[in-house]
Each structure stands twice: as structure tokens, then as C-alpha cells.
């Protein structure tokens, strides 16, 4: 398996006056070269903070306190070396070379993500100049070429445009052009279509799929929209309260979800083939981030909650038959004999 990025036991906490919010709490996952990983979960589950932890862009009061982010960098001689991004100084030369050059990121609010007072051409060229040994005019040529690749009409004229003169969809195209201008091996897309209307969203997703295939880059696609994930992702990671509760191939997860949270999420989707009076919702709300729940963090909302087990024991990730990882006690010997099949505990932690 050609692993590009491996995140192990990542812990990013926010040290607030109200207490410590464990936004990312021992998260483990990996992304293969050229693969699209969809990260799904409700608002505040730690998806965005995970992304910013990888980029080493977490701002105080947030701090990545523990874990490893193993990134495989290609060498000049065709070999590759593995670096732990958490061991690099966040604002040092090496991390800055990776950020924007090898791992790029696009954001939720495309217009707000572009500077209001700089021409978009200059903003794209800036990224190219930071990472490639080219002159200003060469950088501008590359920028124009990138704008064409993201299907912006009249690319040359648009170089002089400002963000407020473009539509939201156009701004996201510009962001994609900027992010891909240095051919990163990983693109982190943090809810890139959430702020866009449905038609524009479809166009942006299509564009991303096309470019992903063309450039053979990996994408970490963060969203709360399961429909988008089904469309885009090869593999899916479901996050709840800073932890990944289920991870596996996208097809498997949609066909046969294992974790009660994933099951509930999928049931809450409106479906064409079923006539329902009411949309299913997940009961309860996400607990507040400072609370220290005993046992499984999902147990107060879980439909299959086992008293005395789920509120006592913290579930560890276990691997099921189709290479699926689930953090749920229902699949361990702690569950009743007549519960779903018991799998081996891998002892990942």
C-alpha cells in the first residue's frame, strides 16, 4: 500500500478558560497516494481541526499535544523519505515548503478566503513564486494556465480581477487553481462546496474529480454531506467528537454501515425509494466540548446502548472482516451473546 499520509493518535486540544476542549482526540487514519478520503461528521466534530493540524496551522489557544503525522516526501532521486510533520517547527522553512507546495488546502468560504485588496492573479502567482524557481512573468503565465484548467473564461483578463468581482463558484475555482498551481500530492478540501448553491456545487465537484484523475493527487475531502462523499470518496472516515468511529471503503460503508452513529447518519438522509412521513433524526445533541463523558462518547445518543458497558468502557478501534475499522463495543466480547458478530480487538491504541 502506497501510503502518502499517516495520522496516528493525533490529539489537538483547545485550552480555554472554560476548560480543555479536545477537538481532536486520538484520531488515526491514513491516505494513500492518489486516493480520495472523505471525512464526514457533524459540525464541531473536529474535521476542520484535523485538517489544520496536518497543515500545522492550528492557532492558539489550540495546540496539537500528541500524535504523529507521517508524511511521505518524494526525493529528487525517486526515493522517498518519511517525515513526521509534528516534529517540524510549524513556521520553519521545511514546513512552509510542504505547506502550499506539497500539501495544499481550500476552504469553506471561497470569497472570504481570497484577499479583498489583492488581484487574484497576484495571489495565485505568489503561491507559485514561493515554491517554484520561476520569474514573476513565468509565474503569471502558469497562473493563467491554471485559471484555464479550472475553466475560468477569459483567464487573462480575470488575472486583474478582485475577489468581490467574482461569484462564489468562480472564487472557489480560483482557490482550486491556486492550491493546485504547485502540483501538490495532497489537497485538503475543507467543506469546499458547503457555501455554494447546488448547481455550482455539482460543477466544482466535477472539476475536482477531473483534476484529481489528471494530476493523480490525493484529496482529503471534509464535508458533512454524505451525498457528496458518496460521489467523491474512495474511502470514508466518520468522525464523532474528535474521534474516527468508523473507517472503510466508501461502497462498504454506504452498503453496510457498522457503527450505530454511521447507521443513524445514513438513516437521517432523505431517500427517493422510501416513502416516509418524517425524516429520521439522531436523538439528542452533540455533548458540549468540555464534558468528560465516561465510556463511549456516543452512548447518550446511541440506539443500541448497553447499560453498564457503553457508559463504562472506552471503545478501541477494531478491524472487521472487510478491512473496516470500527470503534464500538457492540463488536467486542463486552456485548451480549446475541448481539452482532464479535470481532477481534486489534489493540491499536
Amino acid at each position: 500500500m502506497d501510503t502518502l499520509l499517516e495520522v496516528r493518535d493525533l490529539q489537538t486540544h483547545f485550552f480555554m478558560t472554560e476548560g480543555i476542549a479536545k477537538a481532536v482526540d486520538s484520531t488515526t487514519f491514513s491516505i494513500r497516494r492518489g486516493q480520495v478520503l472523505g471525512v464526514v461528521g457533524e459540525s464541531g466534530c473536529g474535521k476542520s481541526v484535523t485538517a489544520r493540524s496536518i497543515m500545522r496551522m492550528v492557532r492558539p489557544p489550540g495546540h496539537t499535544v500528541d500524535g504523529e503525522i507521517l508524511y511521505t516526501r518524494p526525493d529528487d532521486d525517486g526515493q522517498s523519505t518519511v517525515v513526521d510533520l509534528l516534529q517540524l517547527p510549524a513556521t520553519g522553512t521545511e514546513m512552509r515548503a510542504i505547506r502550499g507546495g506539497e500539501i495544499a488546502m481550500i476552504f469553506q468560504e471561497p470569497r472570504a478566503s481570497l484577499s479583498p485588496v489583492h488581484k487574484i492573479g497576484d495571489q495565485i502567482a505568489e503561491n507559485i513564486l514561493l515554491h517554484q524557481p520561476v520569474s514573476q512573468s513565468e509565474a503569471e503565465d502558469i497562473a493563467i494556465d491554471m485559471l484555464r484548467q479550472v475553466h475560468i473564461p477569459l483567464a487573462e483578463q480575470r488575472m486583474d480581477a478582485f475577489a468581490h468581482q467574482l461569484s462564489g463558484g468562480m472564487c472557489q475555482r480560483v482557490m482550486i487553481a491556486m492550491a493546485l498551481s504547485c502540483h501538490p500530492s495532497l489537497l485538503i478540501a475543507d467543506e469546499p462546496t458547503t457555501a455554494l448553491d447546488v448547481t455550482t456545487e455539482a460543477q466544482i465537484l466535477e472539476l475536482m474529480q477531473g483534476l484529481q484523475a489528471e494530476l493523480n493527487m490525493a484529496i482529503m475531502f471534509i464535508t458533512h454531506d454524505l451525498g457528496v462523499v458518496a460521489d467523491m470518496a474512495d474511502e470514508v472516515a466518520v468522525m464523532y467528537l474528535g474521534k474516527i468511529v468508523e473507517q472503510g471503503a466508501a461502497d462498504d460503508i454506504f452498503r453496510d454501515p457498522k457503527h450505530p452513529y454511521t447507521i443513524a447518519l445514513l438513516e437521517s438522509l432523505p431517500r427517493m425509494d422510501q416513502k416516509r412521513e418524517w425524516l429520521q433524526t439522531i436523538r439528542g445533541v452533540v455533548p458540549d466540548p468540555y464534558s468528560t463523558l465516561k465510556g463511549c462518547p456516543f452512548h447518550p445518543r446511541c440506539a443500541d446502548f448497553i447499560a453498564g458497558v457503553c457508559d463504562e468502557i472506552v471503545p478501541q478501534p477494531i478491524t472487521l472482516e472487510d478491512n473496516r475499522e470500527v470503534r464500538c463495543l457492540l463488536y467486542t466480547e463486552h456485548a451480549h451473546q446475541d448481539s452482532p458478530p464479535v470481532a477481534e480487538e486489534t489493540g491499536h491504541q
Binding site: 492557532r59 513556521t91 505547506r99 488546502m105 481570497l114 503561491n127 482557490m175 491556486m178
Partner: peptide, 16 residues
């Protein structure tokens, strides 16, 4: 300082 476009600039690898 907390605006998204500053985060974009940081994500490019600019010096602080």
C-alpha cells in the same frame, strides 16, 4: 488576523 484569507495566505507557506 482571524479572517479566512489570512489562513489562505498561511496555507501557501508564506513567512508569518
Amino acid at each position: 488576523i482571524g479572517r479566512p484569507y489570512v489562513e489562505t495566505a498561511r496555507s501557501k507557506g508564506l513567512r508569518e
